[in-house]
Design a protein around this nucleic acid. Structure first.
Lengths: 227, 227
DNA sequence: CGTTAGGTTGACGACGATCAATGACGGTGG
DNA sequence: CCACCGTCATTGATCGTCGTCAACCTAACG
């Protein structure tokens, strides 16, 4: 699933807080996030902000941003992207059928996340949302083999990011995290998360029937895009 | 953008309330909704339900439902689907590059809707959500040339569908609709919606900077899949 | 007619937003 | 070294939107 042509692809770097593109921008390129964390967000006219998704290494962005991007993309940490013209990207896919499959799988995962996100915002309580988001991030990082040790990891997020992702106020997120800490589920301090009881976290998240998060994820055989 | 092969494709019908597939099902086919309304939904373990998206004629479903479907699909009205094996579908796409483009466009639109949906649930008030959903449906139907006259249309939705789509209680939806009617924005009775003031409805929806819904949609040159 | 499903309206309570004060850091300049 | 910020986290007090519970209405149907 590696892209041999990838070496030829343009690179693009981003510092924390910088944007790859803004909401409403015309986006002609397709990007693959090689390293770092970023997020996609949408702004309302009155200033309220909604974070739509977090992008992690291997994720593809820009594919759906055809004419005018429905949302902007901003870096959380220093990021580096491989960047293809839309045309070149599709040619690449066309030449490597296996890559097409991987792409479809990734888009499927992204949509599954979007669906879970909608369900969270629509039907879960504040505490459930917080637990669900943390569980999702832990699961994704595990699949990417990107967790420092098994239990703890760095989250380059401020309260306001979590709040904007979950449709909550900062203070509410803070209270939920305090609660989860008091109850011995996790510790989150100084941007570092330690999950003390994964099963318990999953219970708190009030999962849908579908998503079986934790169960010994079998190391994800299919590789992500990488370059 | 028509599919000549489509005549050969299997058909599948559905009566209101029936499901094409359930959450967690393995879905091997890709379906194109030829006629009717349906919705995709996700259930939580405690019974709460979230409607994720509404499917209208021309929409593709099943693409992202690779291993275990993240959500079920249920018919609102009598529906008919063209149904392809995943393999046949991709062959079809492979043979007709233009179709691939159309597909990408449709997936982009679907994702844009998902993003707007997330924003609605996360950051919009009850009244804004209701207005936004109605505006979205009106816009989609216009593009499909599926509106009876310019101003009014049939919505095969119960209060509970709107409520489950917007993360609200039936009573809240009812109150919002009463309010919008009182204020002369629209009339919704007996499953029939009449928009009295489209611009006003757009204001009520508190649109994101991005989505310019109403502005004289130029009849959507690109055709949807059809068979 | 009686029954049932769905819509409508009111009363009340709860969850989470808002406002405000305080604390913990890290950076900057005197 | 330490006063002075600015940013972000934390906690408490109060308020408002929306969920819940309940009663009633209407239309469809046997």
């Amino acid at each position: 699933m590696r892209l041999p042509e990838a070496r030829a692809a343009q690179r693009r770097g981003l510092k924390p807080g910088e944007s790859l593109f803004l909401q409403d921008d015309r986006v002609d390129n397709v990007y693959i996030l090689l390293d770092g964390w970023a997020f996609r967000y949408q702004d309302l006219k009155d200033g309220r902000r909604q974070i739509v998704d977090f992008a992690l290494p291997g994720d593809v962005v820009g594919l759906s941003e055809t004419a005018a991007a429905p949302c902007g993309l901003e870096a959380l940490t220093p990021c580096s992207f491989a960047c293809y013209s839309r045309k070149a990207f599709f040619e690449l896919i066309g030449r490597q059928p296996a890559m097409g499959l991987t792409l479809v799988q990734m888009l499927s995962h992204a949509e599954a996340r979007a669906i879970e996100h909608v369900t969270s915002l629509g039907r879960r309580t504040a505490r459930e949302r917080v637990a669900h988001l943390l569980l999702e991030l832990v699961t994704r990082l595990k699949r990417l083999n990107l967790m420092a040790d098994t239990k703890s990891l760095d989250l380059p997020l401020m309260l306001s990011h979590v709040a904007d992702a979950l449709g909550l106020a900062n203070e509410t997120v803070c209270r939920c995290l305090s609660g989860l800490r008091r109850d011995g589920v996790l510790v989150l301090r100084e941007r570092r998360l330690k999950v003390l009881d994964l099963r318990r976290l999953a219970d708190e998240a009030n999962l849908s029937e579908t998503d079986a998060f934790e169960p010994a994820v079998p190391a994800m055989p299919a590789r992500r895009f990488a370059a």
